[in-house]
Simulated assay, not measured.
Amino acid sequence: MLLRSIKGLFTLIRIVPVLSWSFCAILLSVGFAIHDRHGLGSLPWIAICLLLLGALTLQGIVAHALNDRTDWRSGTDQKSPGILSGGSKVIRKGFYSETQLLVVGILGILLAIGLGVYLQSLTAHSVWIFILVGIWSAWSYSSYPFRLSYYPFLGEWLAAFPAMAACTLGTYYILTGSVSVPVIWAAIIHSLLCVGWLMQHHTSDIDADWEAVPQKITTVAWIASRVGKSAVPNLTASYFLLATFVSILATLAVHKIFILSVLCSLLGASSARQTNPFNIANITFNQVKMILLTLIHALLLFGFEIVTR
């Protein structure tokens, strides 16, 4: 029973989105912190380990457990034809029940609060701003009374985007005791890249989301219901183009390093435009490219900051 629960937990976590979103956000900030503090030795490495654990807890456990529970109850996960979408399938595989997933989510929140208490002791009370944003996003994205993912634009702008921005900025703040202008720009760009491939992720589930009870009207499902599925790649591309615009501003106003962000964002927009929204394999192929671009973007900025410290 215990081994089955542990296996279920690993299945629930879904390490690829955690790596691409939260871990990359932390990596970005560690790179900037190393640059600004002139080396590795001055960083509190115990804090970095706690941050990684906290990110894994809030995104991999809390957000995924609550999202799986809600999407299973509405029926969208059962009907999803997606290869990477449709949840972690821990209920379908018999690892957890709906009630157990709720318990897992609540226990994850308690663990995150415990980690927050310790991180506060390393920094200041203001660190709770970032922690509470993370908890809010993990809960509000799927769970009552908010269920922001079931409404167009709300899921990404009130939950997903704030979570990634808080993860990036909070990491830098915990490591340095401040927030720098370049990190703010990096946080915005990384968050937009994540939201961009989230739109791609939702594209596979449009029909299943329409049939859910209650209906899950993600932004892509909303666009598809009004102007047709053929327009969905344009929506996804628009998020990457917004990241491109922000990256250009950052390149001109902050540092030439952000030209790397321009390139990654444009490649993301290109992947979106190449998507056939009626073909699950093609949607998935381009989503994988977007995920890799998000990872590469974080690695490039991290590497540049290390080299130029």
Score class of each variant (00 low, 15 high):
Ser42Glu: 05
Gly31Arg: 02
Tyr172Ala: 06
Leu299Ser: 00
Glu156Thr: 12
Ser121Cys: 13
Thr168Asp: 00
Lys256Val: 15
Ala298Met: 06
Trp139Ala: 04
Leu175Trp: 05
Ile13Glu: 09
Cys264Gly: 02
Ser270Lys: 15
Val18Glu: 01
Lys229Asp: 06
Phe161His: 00
Leu198Cys: 10
Gln120Asp: 12
Ile48Pro: 12
Thr244Ser: 12
Leu169Ile: 11
Gly114Gln: 05
Ala253Trp: 03
Cys194Met: 09
Leu111Ala: 07
His38Glu: 15
Ser180Phe: 10
Lys216Val: 11
Leu58Ala: 07
Leu43Cys: 03
Tyr239Phe: 14
Leu27Cys: 08
Phe153Gln: 04
Phe32Asn: 01
Trp136Pro: 09
Trp128Ser: 02
Ile15Lys: 07
Arg273Met: 11
Val307Gln: 05
Gly105Asn: 00
Cys167Trp: 01
Leu51Met: 10
Phe32Asp: 00
Ala33Leu: 05
Ile306His: 06
Trp21Pro: 00
Leu169His: 05
Gly228Val: 08
Gly116Arg: 04
Leu235Glu: 07
Val127Pro: 10
Val254Pro: 01
Ile129Trp: 14
Gly134Trp: 00
Ala165Gln: 01
Ser225Gly: 12
Tyr118His: 13
Leu110Ser: 14
Cys167Glu: 10
Val183Tyr: 00
Ile291Tyr: 06
Tyr151Trp: 01
His125Cys: 08
Thr219Pro: 15
Trp128Leu: 03
His190Lys: 10
Leu266Gly: 00
Ile26Lys: 01
Thr76Asp: 14
Gly268Thr: 02
Tyr151Asn: 11
Ile106Trp: 08
Asn282Pro: 03
Asn279Ser: 13
Val227Glu: 02
Gln287Tyr: 11
Thr284Trp: 11
Thr294Gly: 07
Trp128Cys: 10
Val117His: 15
Arg37Gln: 14
Pro233Trp: 05
Leu300Ser: 04
Gly105Tyr: 03
Ala237Asn: 02
Gln120Gly: 09
Gly134Ala: 03
Gly134Pro: 03
Ala166Ser: 07
Lys256Ile: 08
Asn286Arg: 01
Leu169Ala: 06
Ala112Glu: 09
His201Leu: 12
Thr308Trp: 15
Val262Ile: 07
Leu19Met: 15
